[in-house]
Design a protein around this nucleic acid. Structure first.
Length: 988
DNA sequence: TTTTGAGACTGG
DNA sequence: CGAACCAGTCTCAAAA
């Protein structure tokens, strides 16, 4: 059908669809202007999926509207196209047992023309009793033509289900009482709907999951009369060369105020497109014409800028908009553009009578604090810095980030001087403006782009969302993907019970005990300054006795080698033995300490994986009783402890109910006198808040305090070792993904050393860049990996479990405390925090040894590390780990699992632990550590971090000088001097 | 005057 | 609508 006849065809439709057509064509027009023509006919195309968004399309013949997904592709030659994929949104409904077909028929009648289809299918429901025996839950899959229709039906049914739950006891509804097939009234069929699932999965996410579609991947796209076909090209791994535009504006502002787009102006806009710089100068604000300029802070960060001088802001905006339409960027990059640059431009454009969305397709959402378009990405580097960079809060400005991540000092101008400088020192301001664009562009290219598009290939969301969503949401998306693949139906979002009681009193809050932190020493420890040790000879005896066992563990488990293949076993053993014997025989000694840091790599994820911990694995006796595998002597139930902590109101339960009755009969004035409402008419959440307020006041009056002191309680959680493994599978694959980056980081570190010895400066630079890149990728993945633990306690998590979070942290706390117990006897623990322990071992303690094999391989071990790992393995190996071997026969294989392992770094030259101003109080989470060459290895906890780099250097110097000072001072003096002199926060 | 609580920020 | 977690330090202000 030609465009002409299509237009005519549509024009005959009702006025409503006419309006829609106008909107549609406006969208199509702007998308076409910016490079995304609809691919509606012709040969198969190869495209790299840039982004996707929910949309709708109109049937050309019937005029009916359908929801669809708009897919935006970039081709190999840098051009782009768009494709519309029709997809029915759906959700699931569960009914009372055996009522599925009746309810289906009823719903079809009731929602005729609104529900497109209903399918009855079986899903793995991990809440279903005895589901491991192969029992599945039947769900009705209700599909719709549009998202709107889904929402309408959903909101009706949500109420129906709520009422049904309120009516019948929850347990009763679930335990599915047998139901006779008698004649039912329509009302009764509604009563049979007992649950809805997955109704709040965003439409585009649903699509990406179901069609296994991800951004950042290549697809063969073809269109036919039946629709669009996509085929993933797994052979193509390189990212497409999408046009990327990083931009930054400078604006006028009033003294000591933030720029206000209502009356301030854009002075200049600088931007880089695919490495080429541009600068548009608004001569209203800038003193003279600016010539083309270069700002290249580092050889690898080139910035050549073509400058255009225009007479005013209007011309500036026009030129920029038209240039954007010319280069058609697929990705716009800013630094805080969500909050500043985009909204400012939008407002200024509106002031001049333009709509920014008509010009470049971007629109700001002030509520969300986002600026987005449907077809192109806006990737705000600030979002990456906040969530993924691991930089401290105080280093989130572009200047600090540039220094930390790009490794050069950017130009800086005091904001108060900018407007004046634009007139008086225009050249300087031009350079400054350009420098921000350069920093933003290269920050994006080196870090944000690889990270976001690497994640986008596994997370079923657009790059904009992958960048901006919280780490827990990303975890949840990965879990939903895995659940879908395993045919597991997702639970609904968790809601906390607002009326929970503990020992007859209302719970204000409840949680679990987290990581374990201790500080055991304060003062200065220097490797060349003798420290007194009082060792425990019996502990050394034990090390000696266990030496064979420990070394064999190191060879077989850590090194994954055959004991027989080692040729120098006894040499190593004797060397260690000798040292241990000397320490045992002279346990009180004065020696330069070995300052070590021993920490468990990815502790929480590995605790999860070792113990097969998943929210749905947490089982009660009731669950086990219903399970077919529940036999005497079963090994599939693993019991682990955790510590619960709750805070309760002082008032008794009866007082609470009394107050509740009272308040429920009251009226609340909602501002104006006329419309005073009954308390019960208020939203549930508000009711709860008001009631809690009342309770607080009552407690204050009656008990002189609101809350009792927190109660803790050791609890036991049962963990099913056979539960469907989709959760741990997700965690494992993400952990391994991070290990890959860690491995690559190591590889490039090797290449860097190689390059350095060869002296090839280009290769050194390349290797340096790769080391930094992989370290950054590794770090960013760490944040999301750890969120798989935190996620289970997230508000609104689909897979929620306080027990699981508690078990994770309690298991971790035991590990680190056991490590301390051992180190206490053989050396001196200094500080421990959650997964790591800083300690001083006697200088003559055995350290690193290398096993040689007969086929001339080498295995270097760290004895202190091995010693701890044997302990960890003995205490934490899970011998009950079960894996499903035959899904049909339901047979499992049991094996032992322990991936919890200590890693070691050190020894270091010195460690400084500050003391409190009050005597005898040690301070946790704060210390400084120095390398042998005198450089700072770690500086933790001091807030000077946020007061800017310059001051950090000052503090650093203070530390260095104090270490020097103490070198000359006597040991006895040390702690005194230190205690009184160093309070790093006072230093400044 | 001391104690308590909220917040901002960091460690892991 | 959308939201990782808890542990700990320090500052500042309000309450006792």
């Amino acid at each position: 059908m030609s465009g002409e006849s299509r237009r005519r065809g549509r024009a005959e439709k009702s006025s409503r669809s006419k309006k829609q057509r106008v909107i549609r064509s406006a969208e199509e027009e702007i998308e076409s202007k910016l490079g995304f023509d609809l691919f509606s006919e012709g040969d198969k195309r190869l495209g790299w999926l840039l982004t996707f968004a929910p949309s709708s399309l109109e049937d050309q013949d019937t005029g009916k509207v359908y929801s669809c997904i708009d897919l935006y592709f970039v081709t190999q030659d840098g051009s782009s196209f768009k494709s519309k994929y029709k997809f029915r949104p759906y959700f699931y409904a569960a009914t009372k047992d055996k009522m599925e077909t009746d309810v289906e028929a009823y719903l079809r009648r009731r929602y005729e023309g609104r529900i497109a289809d209903i399918e009855i299918l079986q899903k793995e429901d991990l809440d279903l009793k005895n589901h491991l025996s192969g029992l599945r839950k039947t769900y009705l899959k209700l599909s719709f033509d549009t998202v709107q229709e889904l929402m309408n039906v959903k909101s009706e049914l949500v109420h129906v289900v709520e009422n049904n739950w309120a009516k019948s006891d929850a347990a009763e509804a679930y335990d599915s009482i047998l139901f006779g097939k008698r004649e039912q009234k329509p009302q009764d069929f509604l009563e049979c709907i007992i649950d809805l699932r997955e109704y709040d999965v965003p439409y585009h996410v649903r699509f990406a999951i179901d069609h296994d579609l991800r951004c950042g991947q290549w697809y063969d796209v073809s269109v036919s009369s039946t629709g669009v076909t996509l085929e993933k090209r797994k052979d193509l791994l390189q990212r497409a060369e999408v046009h990327i535009c990083a931009f930054d504006i400078e604006t006028t502002k009033l003294p000591l105020k933030f720029p206000d787009a209502e009356y301030d102006m854009i002075m200049m806009i600088s931007y880089m497109v695919d490495g080429n710089g541009y600068l548009i100068i608004n001569r209203e604000c800038v003193g003279e014409d600016i010539e083309n300029l270069e700002y290249t802070p580092k050889p690898e960060f080139e910035g050549f800028f073509k400058v255009t001088n225009v007479k005013n802001e209007l011309e500036l905006l026009k030129l920029w908009f038209s240039h954007m339409r010319e280069v058609k960027p697929g990705i716009y990059v800013t630094y805080n553009g969500d909050f500043f640059d985009w909204p400012f431009i939008e407002t200024r454009a509106a002031y001049h009578g333009f709509k920014m969305s008509d010009e470049v397709g971007f629109q700001c959402d002030k509520n969300q604090g986002e600026c987005r378009s449907k077809f192109a990405c806006h990737l705000d580097c600030f979002a990456w810095v906040k969530r993924d960079s691991y930089l401290p809060q105080g280093s989130h400005g572009l200047k600090a980030v540039t220094k930390a991540k790009l490794g050069y000092d950017p130009l800086e101008v005091n904001p108060e001087d900018m407007v004046r400088f634009a007139m008086e020192k225009p050249q300087m301001m031009a350079s400054y403006s350009v420098s921000d664009a350069v920093a933003t562009y290269y920050l994006y290219m080196t870090y944000v782009h690889p990270f976001i598009f690497s994640l986008a290939t596994i997370i079923p969301m657009s790059p904009d969302e992958v960048l901006r969503k919280g780490s827990g949401t990303l975890c949840e998306m990965l879990l939903m993907v895995q659940a879908y693949k395993a045919n597991v139906v997702c639970p609904n979002k968790h809601q906390s019970d607002p009326e929970k009681f503990y020992s007859n009193r209302l719970l204000e809050s409840e949680t679990y005990i987290g990581g374990h932190v201790e500080c055991l020493e304060s003062g200065v420890f220097r490797s060349d300054l003798p420290t007194s040790f009082r060792l425990d000879p019996s502990a050394y005896d034990q090390l000696i006795n266990n030496l064979d066992r420990d070394l064999q563990y190191a060879i077989q488990v850590e090194g994954k080698m055959e004991l027989e293949s080692v040729s120098n076993y006894s040499d190593v053993k004797n060397a260690i033995m000798e040292k241990l014997i000397r320490l045992r025989d002279e346990p009180v000694r004065e020696e330069g300490p070995l300052i070590y840091h021993l920490d468990v790599a990815a502790m929480y994820p590995n605790i999860i994986l070792t113990n097969r911990l998943q929210p749905s694995s947490i089982v009660t006796d009731e669950v086990c009783t219903a399970c077919d595998f529940n036999r005497p002597g079963k090994t599939c139930l693993r019991k682990l402890e955790w510590v619960w902590r709750g805070e309760v109101f002082m008032a008794k339960k009866s007082d609470y109910y009394h107050l509740k009755k009272q308040i429920e009969s009251e009226f609340v004035d909602s501002g104006n006198v006329r419309s005073s409402k009954s308390f019960l008419e208020l939203p549930k959440l508000e009711q709860q808040a008001k009631l809690k307020d009342r309770l607080k006041k009552y407690c204050q009056k009656a008990y002189k305090r609101v809350l009792d002191k927190p109660v803790t309680e050791v609890r036991e959680a049962g963990i099913c070792m056979r539960e469907n493994s989709f959760y741990i599978d997700t965690v494992r694959s993400f952990r391994d993904r991070r290990y890959e980056y860690k491995g690559l980081n190591k590889v490039w570190k090797g290449k860097l050393t190689e390059a350095k010895s060869s002296g090839n400066s280009i290769k050194i630079q390349e290797a340096q860049d790769m080391v930094v890149l992989y370290d950054s990728l590794q770090l960013a993945h760490k944040c999301i990996l750890n969120s798989f633990y935190g996620y289970v306690m997230r508000k609104g998590a689909r897979w929620y479990s306080m027990e699981m979070a508690g078990v994770v942290t309690y298991t971790g706390a035991k590990i680190i405390q056991n490590a301390r117990l051992l180190i206490e006897k053989i050396g001196k623990p200094l500080e421990l925090d959650t997964d790591g322990i800083w300690c001083a071992l006697p200088g003559s303690f055995p350290e690193n040894f290398t096993f040689k094999t007969r086929d001339s391989k080498k295995l270097t071990i760290s004895y202190p590390c091995v010693m701890l790992n044997v302990d960890v393995a003995r205490n934490n190996t899970n011998d009950q780990y079960q894996t499903l071997i035959d899904p049909v026969k339901k047979t499992y294989k049991t094996h032992s699992e322990c991936s919890i392992e200590f890693e070691v770094d050190g020894p270091y030259k010195a460690m400084i632990l500050p003391a409190s101003k009050e005597e005898g109080i040690l301070i946790k989470k704060r210390y400084a550590v120095f390398n042998d060459d005198g450089t700072l290895a770690e500086l933790k906890g001091f807030e000077i971090k946020r007061r800017g780099e310059l001051k950090l250097i000052k503090v650093f110097q203070v530390f260095v000088s104090i270490v020097w000072l103490l070198f000359f001072a006597g040991h006895l003096l040390l702690n005194k001097v230190y205690t009184s002199v160093i309070d790093p926060n006072l230093v400044i």
